[in-house]
C-alpha cells in the first residue's frame, strides 16, 4: 500500500500496543460432526490439509477469517471462541458443498453438518499378506467427476492419511469409477524397511480423491496392523 497508510498503520499498532488487554478470555466454543446423509456415519477426514471450517465473526470489519480443522474421525471442536454470531462455512471438503450457516455461539454450542461424501469406500479390507499390506475396496461416487487417484497410506500415527503418511501406494485413475470393480493397492513392507520397521505396528488407511477443484480425499477408517 501507499506509504502514508503504512505510517498510519504503524501508528495505530503503536497505540494499540500501549493499551492494556482487559477483555474477557474466550468463553464459548463450537463443536460438531460431519455426518453422512445416507449412512449416518461420520465422514472420515484428514487432520492436516483436510476439510476446513471457515468461521467469520460478525461485527468486525476486517474480513479476516478464522479456520477450524476437522479431526480424522469427522468431528471438530474449538473451545476458544468469543460468544457472538458467526457464519460457519465448511470449505475445501470431501463432500458435496454445503451452505454456510449463521449461528449464535453461546457457551458450548454444537453444529452438525449432514453431508454427502463425494466418494464412499465400500467393502474395505486391509490385511497383511506375507510382507505386503493389501487393501481392497469398491468405490461409490456421488458426483459425475473423475476420480483422480486412490491410495493406501501408512503411518505410525492413527491419524494417517494422504498428507500424513510414511509410505503411500497410489494409483492414478483419472476416470469415473466402476461401482462393481474391486480396487486393490499394496504396500511392500520390505521395500520400505527404513520407515516401516519390522515388528512395529502401523496404521493403514485407504482413500480416494475426487477431481473437483481443491476437494479432499474420502477415506475408510484406519486399520492397525
Amino acid at each position: 500500500m501507499n506509504k502514508i497508510i503504512s505510517i498510519l498503520f504503524i501508528g495505530l499498532l503503536a497505540f494499540t500496543s500501549c493499551k492494556k488487554d482487559n477483555y474477557d478470555a474466550p468463553n464459548a466454543g463450537l463443536s460438531g460432526r460431519f455426518v453422512d446423509a445416507e449412512t449416518g456415519e461420520l465422514v472420515q477426514q484428514d487432520i492436516i490439509r483436510g476439510t476446513q471450517i471457515e468461521i467469520f465473526e460478525h461485527g468486525y470489519g476486517t474480513g479476516q477469517l478464522q479456520y477450524l480443522i476437522v479431526k480424522n474421525d469427522g468431528t471438530y471442536e474449538n473451545s476458544l471462541l468469543f460468544a457472538n454470531t458467526y457464519t460457519i462455512k465448511p470449505v475445501r471438503g470431501n463432500f458435496i458443498a454445503v451452505e454456510p450457516q449463521d449461528i449464535n455461539i453461546q457457551g458450548k454450542t454444537t453444529l452438525d453438518f449432514t453431508v454427502t461424501p463425494y466418494i464412499r469406500l465400500k467393502d474395505v479390507s486391509i490385511n497383511k499378506n506375507g510382507n505386503k499390506v493389501v487393501a481392497s475396496f469398491k468405490l461409490e461416487q456421488k458426483v459425475i467427476n473423475n476420480i483422480k487417484k486412490i491410495g493406501l497410506y501408512a503411518h505410525s500415527d492413527s491419524r494417517v492419511g494422504e498428507p500424513m503418511r510414511l509410505v503411500a501406494a497410489e494409483q492414478e485413475l483419472n476416470a469415473v469409477s466402476d461401482p462393481n470393480h474391486t480396487y486393490t493397492l499394496e504396500i511392500d513392507l520390505d521395500a520400505n524397511s527404513s520407515v516401516l520397521k519390522a515388528g512395529t505396528s502401523y496404521y493403514f488407511r485407504a482413500g480416494a480423491l475426487i477431481d473437483i477443484g481443491d476437494a479432499k480425499l474420502n477415506y475408510a477408517p484406519a486399520v492397525k496392523l
Partner: peptide, 8 residues
Amino acid sequence: NNVAGGEL
C-alpha cells in the same frame, strides 16, 4: 465433468 460435477 470437472466443472459441472460439483456444481450440479
